[in-house]
Design a protein around this nucleic acid. Structure first.
Length: 463
RNA sequence: UGCCGCAUAGCUCAGCUGGUAGAGCAGCUGACUGUUAAUCAGCGGGUCCUAGGUUCGAGUCCUAGUGCGGCAGCCA
């Protein structure tokens, strides 16, 4: 056995008459008099291979054990299918049963499972249509992310997962420590001094690689990170994970306009890539998960995003005639209901908002000359809200220092970040994109826990 | 963390103003020479989430807890 083998995807392309081998897991078996139909899938494509087993070609006892979930190898010949439903199929001449799956206890059925149930058996759900498609699209999207940046000369950068800098000063973090011992579920303090802890100071799981990415961009020009990030917020919604993957480009010599252009180009290219490379899987999502999916994705690829200033958006919301739970006026942060109205009702496609009041944005965003707003830009998508958050960064030392001071942040902690402004500073910009949110948008999946193989949320770290 | 909803067969659900539980699918047995969420016939399958309470009697009503989900906040 060797990985170098034709996957089921490739078997469909073989000319009729080719003798070959198919490995996979059984989706379903249908028996008729004298003939059995076994559908198997190995994850290489959405479509199952139909294997024809004529009575007598394989041992009857073995055939009986070829039930949903079993793992098998079929030897046979690829033939044109006489029936509708598939162009080609395999005429079996032999079989090896690697692992049976007891039909009484195997939890995956041919139909009718909810996403919630499948989430409980996440170790088995890769064998179903929906999650096979999700995982393939996730893979294809990750590839497209790298391709997009590599094609443009961006450097792929790995930023630390354990960090001692509370980067953005916002968002609860997971502490990484050896100062606590656990035994039988009990916590025991080993030391209560930070200096005695593993790193000699408090350390955390990263919430963003941005600050580190900035340091490398101011030396290597265009960089991007693509890795896991962590938030210890106790938020239980269909759009939040405690562990999620983020794509963060950072560009020297780039202003907010260039940043928006990149964000838009990025989303259009990744989605365009999926439309051609994941056609079968997207067709499935369109049929079973989200009826408007293909139309929406094509629309995004073909049209430019709506760009507007925060102030303009506030005016529109004020004049919308809608009654919002949270009233709107200049200075407030936009709530979900406002974002939804803008993207879903008013515009009907992604919207890029810029120039937010500085009070509701992070300290590192570049201040505009009005002294009130910063060069932030958020890309809002219908159905899922904020998919990208970015900004032009404050490159002026004095302005950045006074901002840190104003917000009462610990100046010492940012010594290296400020050094970037001290030595060879440059205008630069970047953004962060939540990879799982992008996948929700591209698959139509309704819960973010279902676009990552094993989700981490408050109270849940199974598998 | 707050508000709301749900918890009944392996899965998806029904179960009326309270009277000891039902369907479809899956499974098993059989039928059918080309099925495709196969079809047809038959069979088996229940701690009604947990703990209290009200009642002659609770799947059903009340309280608390647990789990799951939705929305909101926080954000990506």
């Amino acid at each position: 056995m060797d990985y170098r083998r034709t996957y089921i995807k490739g078997l469909f392309a073989l000319p009729a008459g080719t003798a070959t081998v198919a490995y996979g897991w059984v989706k379903t078996r249908r028996d008729s008099k004298g003939i059995s139909f076994v559908q198997i899938n190995d994850g290489s494509c959405f479509k199952d291979l139909q294997v024809i087993v004529n009575e007598g070609t394989i041992d009857a006892e073995t055939l009986k054990k070829i039930t949903t979930g079993a793992c098998v190898r079929f030897d046979g010949v690829i033939v044109d299918s006489p029936a509708a439903g598939q162009a080609v199929e395999m005429q079996a001449s032999g079989v090896e049963l690697f692992g049976p799956a007891d039909p009484l206890s195997y939890p995956l059925q041919k139909k009718g499972a909810t996403m919630e149930f499948l989430r409980e058996i996440a170790h088995l759900r890769a064998r179903g249509n929906t999650f096979g498609a999700v995982y393939r699209v996730r893979n294809e999207a990750a590839w497209a992310v790298h391709k997009f940046f590599q094609d443009r000369g961006f450097l792929y950068l790995n930023t630390p997962i354990i960090t001692a800098s509370d980067a953005e000063g916002a968002g609860a973090m997971f502490q990484v420590t050896t100062a606590v011992e656990t035994a039988h579920g009990e916590y025991k303090l080993r030391t209560n001094e930070a200096a005695q802890d593993f790193f000699g100071k408090p350390a955390f799981l990263t919430v963003s690689g941005q600050l580190e990415a900035e340091t490398v961009a101011l030396g290597m020009t265009n960089v991007y990170t693509f890795g896991p990030t962590f938030r210890a917020e106790n938020s239980s919604t269909s759009r939040h994970l405690a562990e999620f993957w983020m794509v963060e480009p950072e560009m020297a010599f780039c202003d907010i306009e260039g940043n928006m252009n990149l964000a838009e180009e990025f989303l259009r290219e990744v989605i365009g890539h999926l439309l051609t490379k994941s056609e079968e899987d997207l067709a499935f999502f369109n049929q079973r998960i989200e009826p408007q999916l293909l139309a929406t994705l094509k629309h995004v690829v073909d049209s430019s995003f709506e760009r507007m200033g925060y102030g303009e958006a506030i005016k529109m919301l004020e004049q919308s005639g809608e009654t919002f739970e949270f009233p709107v006026h200049w200075g407030v942060d936009l709530q979900s209901e406002h974002e939804r109205w803008l993207t879903e009702v008013k515009v009907g496609r992604p919207v890029i908002l810029t120039d937010y009041p500085k009070e509701i944005k992070a300290f590192y965003m570049r201040q505009n000359d009005d002294g009130k707003t910063v060069r932030a830009m958020d890309v809002l998508a219908p159905r899922i809200g904020e998919i990208i958050g970015g900004s032009q960064r404050e490159e002026r030392l004095d302005v950045l220092e006074s901002r840190i001071q104003e917000l009462g942040l610990p100046m010492e902690a940012y010594w290296w970040y400020l050094d970037l402004r001290r030595f060879g500073s440059a205008p630069h910009s970047g953004f962060g994109l939540g990879f799982e949110r992008l996948l929700m948008y591209c698959t139509g999946m309704k819960n973010i826990r279902d676009v990552i193989p094993f989700h981490r949320t408050p109270g849940h770290a199974e598998f």
